[in-house]
């Protein structure tokens, strides 16, 4: 039972839906500095899509799609990128936003005061930190779910 996942209904609905969930998660991460949400929320949404795949297809449908070593590596890269971005403004203070309002190419634009639609190329280190934390959360939680599924299966067979 555990190797083949759930019923046909669950698997069919999952095939239709999981791409949309991943797309919405990346949208939440990418527009984290404009709309509600951010790195943590978007990463949780993408990780919930991975968890849906795991529950629906079981560990048999997982072979060759998600590699645990890759997930761990991406998580550590996200954590280190977050720390490096925090150290970027160490000349003034820890977590000083060096790139905001600098006018540079990388998220350096300014936003007008008051209610507006938002500028995507603004915010300095905030969007970069959104991506770092988003990658970290999605791969971390996916690694936890995969490890729980595979690790508990090993003990069953022994």
């Amino acid at each position: 039972m555990s190797n083949h996942g759930m019923s046909v209904i669950v698997r069919t609905v999952t095939r239709f839906v999981y791409g949309l969930i991943i797309l919405f998660g990346f949208y939440v991460i990418m527009h984290g500095h404009l709309t509600p949400g951010g790195g943590f929320q978007g990463g949780a949404v993408v990780a919930s899509a991975f968890a849906l795949l795991l529950v629906a297809f079981g560990s048999a449908g997982l072979k060759g799609r998600l590699n645990l070593h890759w997930l761990q590596s991406i998580e550590e890269v996200g954590a280190l990128a977050f720390l490096a971005l925090a150290f970027l403004g160490i000349g003034t203070a820890f977590f000083y936003n060096l790139l905001a309002n600098s006018g540079g190419f990388l998220f350096g634009a300014s936003v007008p005061a008051g209610a507006n639609a938002g500028v995507l190329n603004a915010g300095g280190t905030v969007p970069l930190m959104n991506w770092a934390v988003g990658l970290k959360v999605m791969t971390g939680i996916a690694a936890v779910a995969i490890t729980m599924l595979i690790g508990s299966k090993k003990e069953e067979t022994e």
Binding site: S48, A51, L54, A145, M148, S152
Partner: peptide, 12 residues
Amino acid sequence: ALTTAIYVIAIR
């Protein structure tokens, strides 16, 4: 989503 998935994995 996530706690439900992890609980379902644990119940299995």
